[in-house]
Simulated scan of single mutants.
Amino acid sequence: MNIVFMGTPSFALPSLIELVKSFGVRAVITQPDRPSGRGQKLTPPPVKQFALENGIECFQPESKIELYESLESLKPDCVVVVAYGRILTGDMLKIPKFGCINLHASLLPRYRGASPIQRSLLAGDRFTGNSVMLMDEGMDTGPILSRQVLRIDQEDNYQILSEKLSKMGAVLLVETLKLWFRGEIKPKPQKGNPTYAPPIAKEELRLCWKAHAQSVLNRIRAFFPEAYCFTPRGERIKILKARLAEGHGEEGQILDKKRLVVACGSGAVEILELINQKGKKVSGEEFLRGYREGFLL
């Protein structure tokens, strides 16, 4: 079976690894190297790094034309897509005889789009899951081949939940492909009202203490490790871990002298771990020892 894998971030790696073990992968198509870190050094995507380390041919097309030409030249029997980052056009979808199969980290049609895991945490959902679908020209609108459900734990943040879904999804993907190639599974249309998961905007990362405490906590979990607020001096701090707490006061007011309990519009949250003004990871208690402002903004 001539399989081409399309993916970019670390979320796609477990699927690529399982595909290599079970079927072999002819080539990998991934996004171009992007500037990363403080020095903005060009950095290859995780999928490219794995491909190079394992002797798998790698393509990084810049345009739709280049992408089409790459797929056409590879003549795949099946294209497997996991978090590639670009929508495939109709002419691309027609190339492989077994179609283009996509693993999506939500229970479709819920959370079609770029950020299903973050949106699920932000909404405070109790369950999420993976869907394997046969791709069509829409955005995550293709018929479903298989699904799996996962309960969201209170301790789950974006990083933890992503790792769970990526590992579970890799196993589901391989088992689904085996059935698909043998003709033992039929695509089923998506059922239910669709919801959408647009890309995360930078302004969404800032915490709003006027919100309900549960909403603040959901935002911290959803946008880990980038959710932030400011001190009255304008210093940015990133909030990594928190939990609901008792107490009330003015929005953003620190309510305890020993624990970093912050009042919200309704209720309060206790910040357990953060990155302070100096870029150092500290506990809420450590932060309070040298903090005299009494508020967070």
Rank of each mutant, 00 (worst) to 15 (best):
V282R: 14
G142H: 03
R289F: 12
C100D: 00
R233N: 13
Y111H: 09
T195C: 10
A197L: 06
L179C: 15
G113T: 12
L205T: 06
T8A: 02
S166A: 15
F224D: 01
V132W: 02
I152D: 04
K48G: 00
G99C: 10
R182H: 15
G138T: 13
F287L: 08
R38N: 12
P194H: 04
D136G: 10
N102F: 02
L297C: 04
L255P: 06
D136E: 12
L205K: 10
L93E: 01
V25L: 02
V262I: 14
K186D: 10
F23R: 02
I237V: 14
D256T: 04
L272R: 09
E251W: 08
V261N: 03
L103W: 07
A222W: 04
I200D: 05
P109K: 00
P96D: 10
L173V: 06
I17T: 09
G234W: 10
L244I: 14
L71C: 01
S283E: 06
R34N: 08
E203I: 01
Q190N: 11
R119K: 15
L217Q: 11
F50T: 03
I17D: 02
C100I: 01
Q31N: 12
Q60M: 12
V261A: 08
K75H: 06
V79P: 00
G24V: 06
R151A: 15
P187N: 08
T43R: 05
R182Y: 12
H248M: 10
I275N: 00
L274S: 07
T141W: 03
P46T: 09
E204R: 08
L67S: 05
G138L: 13
L67I: 05
S63N: 09
I144V: 15
I275L: 07
G169A: 10
G265P: 09
F5Y: 03
E286P: 01
A242M: 09
P199F: 07
G138K: 14
G284A: 09
I275V: 14
Y158K: 12
G290H: 10
D156R: 06
Q118S: 14
N276K: 08
I95F: 00
V82K: 00
E175D: 15
L19R: 01
N218D: 14
S162C: 11
G249Q: 04
R289W: 11
G234Y: 11
R219M: 03
G24M: 03
T43G: 03
C100H: 01
P96I: 08
E286C: 05
T128L: 13
P61G: 12
A245V: 08
E66H: 01
D125S: 11
L161A: 10
S266D: 13
G279H: 11
P76R: 02
R243V: 07
L88D: 03
N218K: 11
R151K: 15
S215L: 05
G85M: 06
I17G: 00
C58S: 13
P116T: 07
K202Q: 15
